[in-house]
Design a protein around this nucleic acid. Structure first.
Lengths: 196, 196
DNA sequence: GATAACAAGACGACCGGTCGTATATATCAG
DNA sequence: CTGATATATACGACCGGTCGTCTTGTTATC
């Protein structure tokens, strides 16, 4: 053929930095130059990796969703039961939020609030949210089978409520600069409403 | 002393249009020129009304919160009891969302996800959210006194959960272009968990 | 040499913000 | 009262800078 790609790693570095930047400044608030400078990729090279900023953002959303799923899977694998796995996962998220000084939050919620024009990104966000919701559903269903979680409400319904309430609490966490909303929503739902 | 303001109404029109624009395109996605053109205010006049774009956004947030509070008060006043007032309020919100084609959503959530740099706006958002949460608290407390709402959980705690879950559901509504998440969260919380 | 990835910098549009000036009113001297 | 003056507002041209994108040429591999 011809000159081979320098490396797939460059694309990954761009995506990593893209997730960080989009998290912190949103879509329109993020300039490609800032991302490119951060990972030392020349501006002229950007379009060798992505078709457009919109395409880049959609790829970043998918990348974020993949990392999110991995992180949750890891928490589930290293916990004795699904419910404590879920709590452990949320705990690591909270630790990350605190460490980051409450900036960032959840990419899905941040971009979801901002991206009206792009159907590409909207679809990526929908897939990402749905994937996470389904993972939570699985965990809750296992909790139901083990008698940890009430069975009179379908696991999917519980997962919808938990994930959506969590997203809302993350928004409020950012606004109030406090983890309290996150603790509250977990205590109220996992610790009370969802109990068998 | 000097030439009188063309009218306070101009400022209001700017704020109305600002709320619309920020709702649809976010903070960084909204250009002042677009807002100004929409209400036929020259560029140079903008800074007679607001110190900066940031100041404008904070004012828009407060304006939005005021309209929100009025709308809720109206729903409460024209309902026989606080719980159905709450439901009526959410119903009008949903009708607005549907009419707008699921663009927009909630200004507090949209800007909350995006505005990391501005403490001014963050504080305005915190005040706005808190105000709404307190209104919901009042309604739920009245519901408790009337025996409509369970009393073993404090009204404030219920309001926190309801408002945050609602915000998360609005995010998901925008992503999925469907009112279903909103209906679900109301049925699950108001229709079940909150029941006396 | 053929081919394809990489990169430099140009491009025009647009950004938030500023400037000088025109305009209209309030004040006050007479 | 009249009319000069001070002053806050209205206004649009314009500022430097940044935006996402594209054209063009270079470089490395076959």
């Amino acid at each position: 053929m011809a000159r081979p790609r320098q490396s797939e790693a460059t694309r990954q570095r761009l995506l990593d930095e893209g997730v960080t930047a989009f998290l912190e400044h949103g879509y329109h608030g993020t300039g490609l130059k800032a991302v490119l400078d951060e990972v030392n990729v020349p501006k002229g090279s950007f379009y060798n990796y992505f078709e457009s900023k919109e395409d880049f953002a959609a790829a970043a959303i998918r990348h974020y969703a993949d990392c999110f799923a991995d992180s949750m899977q890891q928490a589930m694998d290293s916990s004795p039961d699904p419910l404590s796995g879920l709590r452990s996962f949320f705990k690591t998220l909270m630790a990350d939020f605190e460490a980051a000084g409450y900036v960032g939050g959840c990419l899905i919620a941040n971009l979801g609030g901002e991206l009206e024009g792009s159907d590409t990104c909207r679809r990526a966000l929908a897939t990402a949210f749905r994937g996470w919701r389904d993972s939570v559903t699985d965990a809750l269903r296992q909790g139901q089978e083990l008698g940890q979680v009430r069975t009179d409400i379908e696991a999917g319904d519980l997962a919808d409520l938990l994930t959506e309430a969590w997203e809302g609490a993350v928004i409020r966490m950012k606004i109030d600069r406090s983890l309290a909303p996150l603790h509250r929503v977990l205590d109220r739902l996992l610790g009370d409403y969802f109990q068998a």
